[in-house]
Amino acid sequence: MAITIASSSQTWYVFGMTRKTDARVRAISTAERLFRIQGYTATGLTQILEESGAPKGSFYFHFPRGKAQLAEETIDNYIAKRIAVLRNISSNTAGHALDFVHLIFSTFAAEMVASDFQYGCLMQNLANELPALDAELTRRVARGFVESTAIIAEHFRECGFAPARASSTAAALVAALEGARTIARLERTPAIFEALAEVSAQRLAAP
């Protein structure tokens, strides 16, 4: 069973006005891709404008505070997609902790393969650059990890885990996923996801 994380841009049509929000969507999509590949600091606004094709005037209409506002909305968009994926996985493995863990690792591994091992986690990349982030970006990144962990913990509780065990297991799983992304990018193989899935399954099966 495969669940796709990546999403594509879309164009809205309102009262006969075509491509009304296309520039905004393309800017967010381009920023997400670049932040995931090369990080926040290394991504300049000029590169985002060039690769998204968004006119400068249109860009500042949608993001009057510039790169910082674009980053805020990009983080929010990324978190929303990540939450949707986790909820989908949870729904497809309701009541089954082992299946849940295996599907999470296989889903994230599949995304790494699909991106040719270029994409890191946007939240992890930005978290690694905390000195370059303002307080609002830092808060948003932290919220993303908190919400992701909460959904995973909720699934484990529904599988009968005690609250404390559900929380600690969820936190460990999120940390493992972020570490796996880094190793997979370096080694250009999803093997680390498979290894972590097996180790996690063994721990979950233990009394």
Rank of each mutant, 00 (worst) to 15 (best):
Y13V: 09
E136L: 04
S200I: 02
D116R: 10
V199L: 13
G39K: 03
A132M: 05
L133P: 10
P207Q: 13
V101F: 01
P207Y: 10
I83K: 07
T30E: 05
S167G: 12
F156A: 05
T107A: 05
F145K: 12
R188D: 00
A197M: 08
M17Q: 14
T74D: 01
F59A: 04
S52W: 01
E158N: 15
V141W: 04
T41N: 05
T18E: 12
F145E: 13
P55M: 00
A127T: 14
A68D: 14
T149F: 07
S52H: 01
T182D: 09
H102F: 10
A31G: 01
R19C: 04
E72I: 05
R165M: 12
L133Q: 04
T93P: 09
F15H: 11
A170T: 11
A142L: 07
L186R: 11
G144W: 07
E158M: 09
I104H: 06
E136P: 01
R65I: 01
A175L: 11
R65G: 02
E129D: 07
A176P: 04
F63P: 00
S7G: 08
K20D: 07
R36Y: 00
F156S: 06
A176C: 07
V199M: 12
L130M: 14
V141T: 08
I48N: 03
F108L: 14
A175K: 07
Q47V: 04
S167K: 15
L186N: 08
R26D: 01
E32R: 10
G44A: 07
G95V: 09
A197S: 15
E51M: 13
L173M: 13
T11D: 14
V141P: 05
V85I: 08
Y78H: 11
F117R: 06
S90D: 06
D134M: 02
V113P: 03
P190T: 09
L204F: 14
E158K: 15
S167V: 15
A6C: 10
I104D: 00
T93N: 13
A71E: 02
A54N: 06
A205N: 14
H96N: 15
A171V: 12
Q69N: 03
A27R: 01
A27Y: 03
C159K: 07
F63N: 02
I3D: 13
V174C: 09
A94F: 06
Q47E: 15
F35I: 09
I79A: 01
F105H: 10
I28A: 05
R139C: 07
G44H: 09
F108G: 06
F61S: 04
N125K: 14
Q38C: 05
A153F: 09
L204D: 09
I79R: 03
I48W: 03
I83C: 05
A195I: 15
S115T: 15
G66F: 00
G44F: 03
Q118E: 14
A54E: 08
I3P: 11
E129W: 03
P55S: 02
F145L: 11
I48V: 10
E194I: 11
F59D: 00
L34Q: 02
I183Y: 05
A6R: 14
R181S: 06
A97R: 12
E136Q: 12
